[in-house]
């Protein structure tokens, strides 16, 4: 598995993101789409009931416990297109915090403003966003401000509307495209004006730190995490001997 080239590393450090066009394709993409739709179909009634009782958000539909539903979601976590980059950037000590298998309804407003996910006091925090269907620029695409991950970027501005953010970049993409980004950076989901819900998977990682993820977080799928590398990635075993 190949990690970043010197050029990619420099781009990552300067901009805070890397894009992998058609990172998943062919049979892998078909398998992933099928698993996504199957899981979404199985969980939708519960989501609608949760909306009605005021306990689940209508603004995004997250499939609960996706790793327990289909091995295709587990295989995404250390997928060879992006995982070597995560390992490299985290000094070979990356852990999984969780996946979000998410459908975003088309809405006249975005459900979230520009924000970083964590402060710089948190160990390096990274996300991979994978589009399951084609996403147009006005279809709820991922937006990111290149360079905003740097410690000297200052606090995230709150421009109104989203488009007032200076120097932001929108990431339309094809099904199977993936974007790796540093979550110190300012990002959002742009407004979806297409009428078509956006389907994507967001994988959340962090450079290991003691006690961040308990060893039983992924115990329910431990029988499928058989290699030492995977067991460390899923915090089933200690990162450091």
């Amino acid at each position: 598995m190949a990690g970043p080239t010197a050029e990619e590393r420099a781009f990552w450090e300067e901009n805070g993101y890397l894009r992998f066009d058609l990172a998943i394709a062919g049979e892998d993409l078909v398998r992933l789409k099928n698993a996504f739709d199957r899981a979404a179909s199985a969980c939708k009634e519960d989501w609608l009931e949760g909306i009605a009782t005021g306990t689940k958000p209508a603004a995004h539909f997250d499939i609960p416990n996706p790793l327990e539903r289909d091995d295709v979601f587990i295989d995404l976590i250390d997928y060879p297109v992006w995982f070597p980059y995560l390992q490299d950037f985290a000094d070979d000590e990356v852990i999984l915090l969780g996946p979000q298998v998410r459908t975003l309804p088309a809405q006249p407003i975005s459900y979230v403003g520009w924000h970083p996910d964590v402060p710089h006091t948190t160990p390096l925090h990274m996300k991979v966003q994978i589009y399951i269907e084609d996403v147009q620029a006005n279809g709820g695409a991922f937006g990111f401000v290149p360079g905003s991950h740097k410690p000297d970027a200052g606090p995230c501005p709150k421009p109104r509307p989203l488009e007032a953010m200076p120097n932001y970049k929108v990431f339309p993409g094809k099904a199977g495209d993936a974007i790796l980004f540093n979550s110190y950076g300012w990002h959002t989901s742009m407004v979806n004006e297409t009428g078509v819900p956006r389907k994507s998977i967001i994988l959340i990682y962090e450079k290991w730190s003691e006690g961040k993820v308990s060893s039983d977080r992924y115990a329910s799928i431990s029988d499928r995490l058989t290699t030492p590398e995977r067991r460390r990635l899923f915090s089933l075993e200690p990162m450091r001997g």
């Binding site: 005021g54 306990t55 689940k56 958000p57 209508a58 809405q107 407003i109 975005s110 109104r160």
Partner: peptide, 17 residues
């Protein structure tokens, strides 16, 4: 009986627009 803040906020707060 409701969570605080309300879960419905994701469809409310953006209406500042």
């Amino acid at each position: 009986e409701s969570p605080i803040p309300p879960v419905t906020r994701y469809n409310t707060l953006g209406q500042y627009l």
